[in-house]
Nucleic acid binder design. Sequence first.
RNA 1: GCCCUGGUAGUGUAGCGGCCUAUCAUGAAGCCCUGUCGAGGCUUCGACUCGGGUUCAAAUCCCGACCAGGGCGCCA
Length: 607
Amino acid sequence: MLKTQDCGSLRSKDIGQKVRLAGWVRFYRDHGGVRFYDLADSFGITQVVYDPEAYQSDVDVVGMGNVLNNIGREYVISIMGKVRERVPGTEDERNPTGKVEVLIEQVRVHNASKPLPFEIAEQKNSMLPGEDLRIKYRYLDLRRAEMVSNLRFRHRVLSTARKYLDGIGFIEVETPTLTRSSQEGARDFLIPSRIQPGTFYALPQSPQLYKQMLMVGGVEKYFQVARCYRDEDSRSDRQPEFTQLDMEMSFVDMEDIYRTIEGLYSQIWKDALGKELKIPFPRISLDDAISKYGTDAPDIRFGLELVEVTDIVSCATYDIFQKILQKKGVIIAINLRSDIVKEKMLDANVGRKEVDRLIEWAKAQGMGGLTWMRMTEEGLSSNIVKYFSKDVLDRLAERMGARKGDLLLFMAGPKHQTLKAAGQLRLKLGRDNGLLEGKDHQFVWVVDWPMFQADPITGKVTSAHHPFVHPAGGDFDENGDLLKVMSDSYDLVLDGSEIGSGSLRNHDPNVQRKVFRVLGMSEEKMEQAFDFFLEALEFGAPPHGGIGMGMDRFCAMLLGCESIRDVIAFPKNKKFQSLVDGSPTKVEQAKLDELQLMTLAEEDEEN
RNA sequence: GCCCUGGUAGUGUAGCGGCCUAUCAUGAAGCCCUGUCGAGGCUUCGACUCGGGUUCAAAUCCCGACCAGGGCGCCA
């Protein structure tokens, strides 16, 4: 080894020891005689010193000085030397190794470094460059302490999961990444076959069918840290390739799955965060989530719940509301209570200026606007109360629990859009007023999902989750009201983000066929797309269910990262390019020929 | 496909019609300095994304392109 210990380990007790250290020269300070070098590796930083007056005669002081003279930042060196106490008064309290330093007796330069494209030292966070540069030079970005610790945290989470699941009888099984393309779901990434030209594999969107077939195979308790691929447009919390902690188990009901997952996260909390996690997680029905929080992934850590007031204001003559009501729209209200606002604003009330800002914000969300009323001594007041009778105002105030100083905000429009926008407004008000400050993370199970939903545009019946979900009660009437059929599925939500989704699955091939049928799939198409899977179910498939949980987002949330890119070693940018290696790229014509492929993309002019 | 925001030395920024042969910091190169720790001092180097337009005058205003990010659609 080039090092006897890492750069974060030396303490006062090590004084007098001869040690070898290796790492990168993060900073150096040359005082004309004595020189200080901050030698860094991913475990810490140790100050090593060239001190001409301190050396014995057997040390080549001049030669070593010449070598050290030529090194720069991020040069890779190893040193041998003696740990010594720092001169009293010059200890560095901020660094765990700050009480000692190493007097360099031998130095070896292993590699030089070009001048850096950006600062690596973590103290210079305010000077972090644009993210594209950080990703292009990811290998430098990763040297930053924050990035190293992100990767370590992610490792801790996954290794805890592995240990925990192993301990309760799960086994990790790998499933293929060259798989069959399916018509369902997101767009596939396709891989052309050379052996059978004209045919394609797809990268898996999830190991769904494989893990179900593992259950048929009697694996019973399966998990996998699975890379999944979906070719849909990116968001800050979405990458084309992402990692799921994927699980499936046989002979279980939903309660068993909830308990397993709660136990898993409780262990992760202990090992990765050093905290106790409160279990079991609360549960909320999908209907409640939508009506109270305007989303299927509610953040339940603060109030400001949505209240529908459509019935009350339908009696008012207010033109804007009336027009929306005629189109079967809804009116959703939020009570921004004055005691919530008080902390942040100087005034006990949100001023008119603030309300105007909210109105602008609502318009940017695609809403027509935003209506407000303020609760005063004399009751509700605003520019529009003249359109509302006293009775309507009283009933509004009562339903909203409005007290003096409270501000009621109303959004009106088509149901789906309005609930969604009101949910966004709730989150914004929560953030703006610091309602999340100091709050612990909060899981919630979103339960009671329907099997099917109608496409808002075509009216076509689609799966609410995916086609393999088990209907509540095990079966359903395909001629009944499909939209009323409930399913045995659940989402796991953390702080307002969906981080997992799962269900019991159809183990009965007849029920599975029925689901495909009501989704509009013909017998031929069923056979063509899922013959292998349906056949697997015919050979004694056990009852089973599971969940897949996104680990990128989960880690990013626990670390407070703004983007999941900060917990991924080599992420892609918004256009799915990998800036560090420049992929995707064109390939040589010969490679296309071999695959018998032709591109229709326009050639660049330079070619 | 659509919408929004942004693009100034290697990096982070200031400037937002004339005070601009463009500010400050950091960096790089060189010199000085024996206890610093984001060392310090001095000197030097280095930039307005591109193309049109408006104007006596454009980094600054307008239009378009490109690039980046955020969002909508999409993500069973």
